[in-house]
């Protein structure tokens, strides 16, 4: 049926051309260029000339991997992401279970959704500086509340205590993202056939049983989607750690993105090392997104492929048997 339209095939190329050109210029070329710079001695403000490192091509990569600041920033990034993601997905799942259970009859769900999602829409740079003002020491709003409620006797200096500083960054990330995750999960639950829930209710399943044996298994793909996209976002955490405590105290909130930015664009202008660090992060992100890619790929397509292969195998088997019987 498609055969007769083949005269229009060239239009397919034409319509996809602007995308391809923009991709080549603004994404592919910078990737290649970044990789190349990782193998050179390109550093210093305004440098455009560089030489390849002939003696030891992987010098920058080795330097970065051995760099204590980079190691620390990587540990911080992963640590702060985990401390934000686990409570985030936990709370989002809890709220999803509550909001999608019709037996609860919650009023104002729409308003709650709007309010929970609101922090996500606000500029992250603004959020970081707002929180920096809120945790002011000795007299900031947060300390004011903690002391009025009697949680602490003395004001906490968030800017000096490393664990508290990291926890605060995780909290800000959590605060910005749990609403988003919740909305995604709710839409996932609404996509599950209601008959499954009805039959579970008829069978006398409790709320908790329904949640663990029906909701969670059916949300598997969406949970994976959330996990991977959050991980990829978390690996690039920049605005909040950069502006909240400027990576401090003592690099406690330094993330890999802030590290790369500081290496390349403030003070030292070590483009080559920053490129090497970028490529290391790029490989990690690629691995994470490969997982997502293979699970999100059109499932029909995967099944179709399987089917064709099976048919081929059977056909071959048949032929073999036929040959055997002939012999």
């Amino acid at each position: 049926m498609k055969r007769k339209h083949s005269g229009y095939a060239k239009w397919g190329y034409i319509f996809c051309l602007p995308f391809t050109i923009a991709f080549l210029i603004f994404t592919l070329y910078p990737i290649i260029f970044t990789t190349v710079i990782g193998f050179t001695d390109c550093k210093g403000l305004g440098t455009v000339k560089f030489h390849f490192l002939v003696d030891d091509p992987f010098l920058n990569f080795k330097n970065i991997l051995a760099n204590p600041s980079f190691q620390k920033s990587f540990r911080n990034t992963i640590g702060m992401w985990i401390c934000n993601f686990i409570p985030q997905i936990g709370l989002a799942l809890l709220l999803t279970a509550w909001f999608t259970d019709n037996r609860n009859h919650i009023k104002g769900k729409g308003l709650f959704k709007v309010l929970f999602y609101m922090p996500n829409i606000i500029t992250a740079a603004t959020v970081a500086i707002l929180f920096n003002a809120l945790i002011g020491y000795p007299m900031g709003p947060v300390n004011d509340i903690l002391m009025t409620l009697g949680i602490t006797d003395q004001p906490i200096n968030f800017q000096v205590n490393k664990a508290v500083a990291r926890g605060s960054v995780s909290f800000i990330q959590f605060w910005t993202w749990y609403g988003y995750t919740m909305i995604i999960l709710i839409s996932g639950v609404l996509g599950i056939s209601p008959e499954i829930f009805e039959s579970a209710e008829v069978d006398g399943a409790s709320r908790i049983q329904t949640f663990f044996y029906i909701t969670i298994p059916n949300l598997k793909t969406i949970l994976l989607f959330t996990l991977v996209t959050s991980l990829i976002g978390g690996l690039q955490m920049f605005d909040i750690p950069k502006l909240f405590l400027l990576g401090g105290p003592d690099n406690a909130t330094l993330t890999t993105s802030v590290f790369i930015y500081n290496q390349a664009f403030s003070g030292s202008y070590l483009y080559n090392r920053a490129s090497a660090a970028s490529m290391i992060m790029f490989i990690i992100i690629c691995a994470a997104s490969a997982v997502l890619f293979f699970t999100m790929r059109d499932k029909d397509e995967a099944e179709l492929e399987k089917l064709t292969k099976q048919q081929e195998r059977e056909y071959r088997k048949m032929q073999k048997e036929r040959r055997k019987s002939h012999e």
Binding site: T27, F33, T34, I232, Q236, A264, M279, I285, S289
Partner: peptide, 15 residues
């Protein structure tokens, strides 16, 4: 889809 702009920034800036 998942290639982040940040990662390619050094090359982009140099270009």
């Amino acid at each position: 889809m998942m290639i982040p702009a940040q990662i390619t920034m050094i090359g982009f800036y140099q270009m």
